[in-house]
Design a binder for these strands. Structure first.
Length: 267
DNA sequence: TACTCTGTTGAATA
DNA sequence: TTATTCAACAGAGT
């Protein structure tokens, strides 16, 4: 699930451990989560350092520790960050657990599509600084969105919105919500958009990002009723406007729900 | 039991 | 260069 707002929620769970010194690190170093890094180094270097701060960039997370240690996390499809008392016993899918005297910070991910990265130095790791501006930042501009759509003129809108280089932070449910509000069919190609539709896409994108962050990231609450979110997955889901049964099909490789009245294919 | 589905993404292929 | 397909993984649902 973790998209922009859920990632932000999880970041705050680990922030509860800010200013606490780690005493022990427990991890399943052989799992896919740690691909590309030496998991053993985490276990050796992190104890003795303290969590200082954290940052999110779209779906990417960065935790800064004292002693110039940096932990990058991606939650993949089923990753979660939680916090537990210090006596916590890691279970099968608790692949990385950081213990301070007061608590355990847990990275749990059954499907292991998530990822842990590690860096050392006085500055944030280079891969972090190279990330594109996430959709909720002021650096993400309408001009940048339009340039990306021009570059991917034949990719269905649904696929474009899921592209993390073009729309960092958007995931499957947000993409459907955005297209529904903009009254755009997920199969529409960017090259077919008239300027009124591009404007609608931009407005809808901003609205859904702001709303998701406001409603979901504080407590993991659902967005307000009236959002497509509540209808997307249930069989017999209805368009919140027309009470029309939603279409449900794979578009650009992902399950997609839309209203055939609001989001007519072509004009 | 067997088979299908899933909120991500990146590698391989076209 | 851009678009599509598929695999990585585990568990839930039918």
């Amino acid at each position: 699930m973790p998209e922009l707002a859920e990632v932000e929620y999880y970041r705050k769970q680990w922030n509860r451990g800010i200013d606490e010194t780690l005493v022990r690190v427990q991890l399943h170093g052989e799992t896919r989560i740690f691909r590309g890094i030496r998991a053993k180094k985490l276990r050796q270097l992190l104890p003795g350092s303290a969590l200082l701060r954290s940052e999110a960039n779209g779906k990417q997370l960065l935790f800064e520790f004292s002693e110039g240690l940096w932990l990058g996390l991606h939650l993949g499809m089923t990753g979660k960050l939680t916090e537990a008392p210090p006596g916590f016993r890691p279970g099968k899918h608790d692949h990385l657990v950081l213990f301070s005297r007061k608590r355990a910070l847990i990275f749990n991910d059954p499907r292991q599509f998530g990822r842990v990265r590690f860096g050392q130095g006085s500055e944030a790791p280079e891969w972090w600084n190279r990330l594109p501006a996430p959709v909720n930042s002021t650096r993400f501009t309408r001009a940048a969105m339009e340039a990306f759509l021009r570059r991917h003129a034949r990719l269905p809108l649904k696929g474009a919105l899921l592209h993390q280089t073009g729309f960092p932070g958007i995931g499957n449910w947000m993409a459907d919500e955005i297209l529904w509000r903009a009254k755009l069919n997920p199969l529409t190609r960017p090259s077919e958009l008239v300027s009124r539709q591009t404007a609608a896409l931009w407005r809808s994108l901003r609205f859904v990002c702001r709303g998701a962050l406001r409603h979901i990231s504080p407590n993991f609450a659902d967005p307000p009723s009236g959002w497509l979110f509540h209808q997307r997955w249930k069989s017999g889901g209805l368009c919140p406007i027309h009470a029309q049964p939603l279409e449900r099909r794979t578009v650009a490789g992902r399950t997609t729900a839309w209203c055939s009245v609001c989001q007519r294919a072509h004009r």
